[in-house]
Design a protein around this nucleic acid. Sequence first.
DNA 1: AGACTGACGATCC
DNA 2: GGGATCGCCAGTC
Length: 105
Amino acid sequence: MNDPLIEDICAVVAAIPRGKVTTYGEIARLIGRPQNSRLVGRTMGRITDRPHIPCHRVVNSQGRLAPGWDEQRDLLLSEGVTLKANGNVDMKRCAWRPFDTEELQ
DNA sequence: AGACTGACGATCC
DNA sequence: GGGATCGCCAGTC
């Protein structure tokens, strides 16, 4: 059964353009739970059965990728996401903003 | 009911 | 800029 929380997260994550990434905190804020960023990450772990949801485009504020998910790094690289030497995502270039779509910047 | 943990965030060093 | 610590909320043991 899909919880309303999962539906909200999927809606936001699905809106992330290719080559861009967003943070759990940003999603949490968009779904109305600015302090539940951890719940978002935990919930996303349950969305693994949703291939249509690019959950690999979701990282934390540090640009750190999900632990135990080495495939995520390869997926991001395939989309043109720039990673730093330490393996973190370059949020400076790939941080997606709902208000700032492809038409802007 | 109580304690621990976590795909986190912000702050401090 | 990177690493360590504290704080928040919900889920799990």
